[in-house]
């Protein structure tokens, strides 16, 4: 297990490094940052001044290394639009997005896993049909439309929940439902198919032949093996949620990192965009690392790899 841990950690580190290279160079390839920052109607002298000030005239590799070196100490430079350190902006905004993402993930797991399990235990029953409808609906419904419908119902017709802002927990209820429901179909279908497969396994029959209660067979022997792919997909879904929360955050006016990304992209605020891309990717890499560890803990066969 220790060997496995360090192997995976090394791999995660390499991926993170690669991501930092990609995010830096691809954003540079998108256009001359000095021209974008100077804005419309800027003179050649203005552009040259910006180039000088931000160091865009240095060799690209040097720029990358100094950016990376600063990033490692938590210094992402200064936002050209907000005129604040990027690290401060991110530390203000990230908790909101992470809070939304975590609560949405919990919501979708609490909805999808029990529903998927019930559907697998009673295939082709009423509960299976209901589970199928829930997932088809989640797959088919655009989440911005679902968000607007929730606002119409719970903020306009029956004003029980606030439509915008991020002051207290009530502001997070509707965004959590929208974002969480979006991830529900994949998790539920995977739980159902994994569970169906496991329930037909010989070792489930062995467990029944021991005479232990059916609920124990289901939870101890079946679920642990069926949940493996769900752990992987849940971490991927969480990554999607962090990215996909841009839309949800703008609809509900949550000042999270998604909204910050949108603002800084539209204002060509290069240091901020770079920092956001890097941090979201690192969170993603971290999640996959954690999912690998959880799976190894659940399934002894993985630990050798």
């Amino acid at each position: 297990m220790t060997v496995f841990f360090f192997k995976r950690l090394g791999l995660a580190f390499l991926v993170a490094l690669f991501v930092s290279v990609l995010s830096f160079f691809m954003l540079r390839a998108a256009g001359d940052p000095a021209i974008a920052m100077a804005g419309e109607g800027a003179t050649a002298a203005d552009i040259e001044f910006i180039r000088e000030q931000f160091g865009f005239n240095r060799p690209l590799l040097m720029q990358y290394l100094s950016w990376l070196g600063n990033a490692l100490t938590g210094d992402f430079g200064e936002s050209s639009y907000f005129a604040k350190p990027v690290s401060q902006l991110i530390s203000e905004r990230l908790p909101i997005t992470l809070g939304l993402g975590v609560s949405a993930l919990i919501f979708s797991i609490l909805l999808a896993v029990p529903l998927g399990m019930l559907a697998a235990v009673n295939p082709n029953s009423l509960i299976d049909r209901i589970a199928l409808s829930v997932s088809v609906l989640g797959q088919a419904m655009p989440n911005f439309w679902f968000a607007l419908m929730l606002i119409v119902i719970f903020s306009v017709w029956y004003p029980v929940l606030p439509a915008s802002g991020n002051a207290e927990w009530r502001h997070f209820v509707m965004p959590t439902i929208v974002l969480g429901y979006y991830a529900t179909p994949a998790i539920m279908r995977l739980t159902r198919s994994g569970m169906l497969e496991v329930l037909n396994a010989d070792y489930i029959r062995t467990a029944h032949a021991k005479g232990i209660p059916a609920s124990r067979v289901l939870i101890k022997h079946a679920m642990r093996n069926a949940i493996l792919p769900v752990v992987s997909i849940a971490s991927v879904q969480f990554g999607y949620m962090l990215g996909g929360s841009i839309i949800i955050e703008s609809i509900f006016a949550l000042h999270g990192i998604g909204q910050l990304a949108w603002e800084s992209i539209s204002r060509a605020d290069l240091p901020t965009v770079q920092a956001i891309v890097l941090i979201l990717s690192l969170i993603y890499v971290g999640l996959n690392f954690v999912a690998d560890l959880v799976n190894a803990w659940l399934d002894p066969r993985i630990r050798i790899a």
């Binding site: 029959r205 062995t206 032949a209 399934d299």
Partner: peptide, 14 residues
């Protein structure tokens, strides 16, 4: 009960 296939009759996770 003694089952046929010992490769699959035991739960891999315990």
């Amino acid at each position: 009960m003694i089952f046929q296939d010992p490769m699959t009759a035991l739960n891999p996770s315990y």
